[in-house]
Amino acid sequence: MQQKTTNHKAWFLVLPVLVLVAFSAVIPLMTVVNYSVQDTFGNNQFFWAGLEWFQEMLSDERMWNALQRQLMFSGIILAIEIPLGIFVALNMPKSGFWSSFCLVVMSLPLLIPWNVVGTIWQIFGRVDIGLLGYTLDALGIDYNYTQDTISAWITIIVMDVWHWTSLVALLAFAGLKSIPDAYYQAARIDQANRWKVFRFIELPKMMGVLMIAILLRFMDSFMIYTEPFVVTGGGPGNATTLLSIDLVKMALGQFDLGPAAAFSLMYFLVILLISWVFYTVMVNLDKKGM
């Protein structure tokens, strides 16, 4: 890593970013803080409520249930996407036309607007007109994502795997490509088998990018909103109401500003914590010069 010089005038260069992001992040966040400690009877008359909303939310089953579903969702998709992504990366052609071809096709789902991703799977899974739903139905499997909880869960999980596994694969592939050939030659001399090459060369060398992949996937799945909302709308019942869906329902649907704000802040604190882990990982990677 290059040596940096100390120059406090560099602040002028970051000032535009600071002003812009402060405008679009700090002001709204302060509004949220404001709502979280006040109550209203309408007519824009607010009065101090202290930490009431936080207490109410913490003892509210609704938030805990949403959190539980959220953690389950994030856990399942990580458990599928990370190994599958690594597996795909290991099987990707390393160079030439087919490598580019795979890169382009694999990137395609990543560039589709999120509501269209939802729409695609909403159609794909329908029993009457969707290929997936129709096929499963023809095979005699009881599948209906609008009424059956398990079907709904399978649909949103397969959708997320479809949408984001490529990201993990692309990152792992980038990590694999950075391994010098000498490592493989050394392994050949030592007569290491395929598993040992993976375990002792590829996996340790990929660890950095994999950490990034895991954190990114965790964060993004933790705040997922559009895709499951389009497919299931949070249903059947509340079965697929994840944190963001619940929050938007509360804030924009029911206009429960106080509880929604308290909810938002606690949500944000979790995100902050994970961001910090992410940042620490990044800084350590930079130090190692990866």
Partner: peptide, 25 residues
Amino acid sequence: RYNFLGDKHLFFWLLTNRMAPPAVF
């Protein structure tokens, strides 16, 4: 290129905004 007062904190704070759930905002 430069070290300056609070650079690391600022860089981290920027990251938190990338990670912020749109639903909150």
